[in-house]
Amino acid sequence: MLSRTASNLYWLSRYVERAECLARILDATYRLSALPQGYGSDTNEWESAIATAGSVISFGENYKEANERTVTEWLAFSPDNPASIRNCLEIARTNARSVRTALTGEMWDAINSAWHELHRYDPKRITREEFTRFLNFVMETSVRFDGTSFRTMLRNDAYWFSRLGFLVERADATARILDVKYHVLLPREAQVGGPLDYFQWASILRSVSARTSYHWVYRDSVKPWLVADLLILNRQMPRSLASCYENINRYLDDLAQFYGRQGQAQRLARATTSKLENGKMEDIFQSGLHEFITQFLIENNRVGNAIGDQYLI
């Protein structure tokens, strides 16, 4: 397969996943900011959203203040933000057009019709209710795209590259949510169980659409260390770091077998996978949740680069 084709497939999936992650972050932020004073946190939730999306600096260059209007505009529609939802879907479609022949008709249809739909939303005149519909549309697009690729693609290198892009992006998104919110998950003497933190925890779960999953897994009220466990180590949870890496590892193995050789990408992914498989939440808290997440983001980035160097250029 052409390296560029592999690269387009990889980034197509990454951008679709990124659009969905942004939509979830915005959705969770709306919920949190809608809480009456006293329930919400003392931090500005809109700033957290910008931090989670990883665009603190570029946002700062364009706006004075983080509030509902500015953050919504920046993360959802801004043409100046290369990673706005709108741009993610634009880039996804451009990638899809470049690899039309490597996509199934259904996948192309999912992206192409989403792109047409996208242009129906006018950011200048969008109401709050429409915006909720917009976020739903973005999340549904991702599900539809993912579903069509799962159901229609041949299980060969094209599929594996598409999955890898999706998983590396997903691991990155989960880790960044944890990176911004890690402090509310830390075991603390004061305020534990207070209303403030409860809604913060719930919001984290919402931003990875895991509120229901949490209860199925733990059958317990929302507790910060369990939230951390669910998002980091729990292999049942498809957005957890462990689950992402279990699958990254698997698809990289498939590639290595298919091509008859392996390289840096496989080696790095294996190291990260075993660390997550053997990790315990106590140890992670002990040695520092923040440090753990920071380190993970670095490693995940390295795996992404190694995939790029090995296959995509």
Partner: peptide, 26 residues
């Protein structure tokens, strides 16, 4: 798609020692 061949752009190919190659994942 109908030909079952790669759709390449110029940047997918390079010249080495009077031969033409395309960059593939292998």
């Amino acid at each position: 798609d109908k030909l079952g061949c790669e759709l390449v752009e110029g940047r997918d190919m390079f010249v080495k020692g009077d031969m033409l190659y395309m960059r593939t994942t292998e």
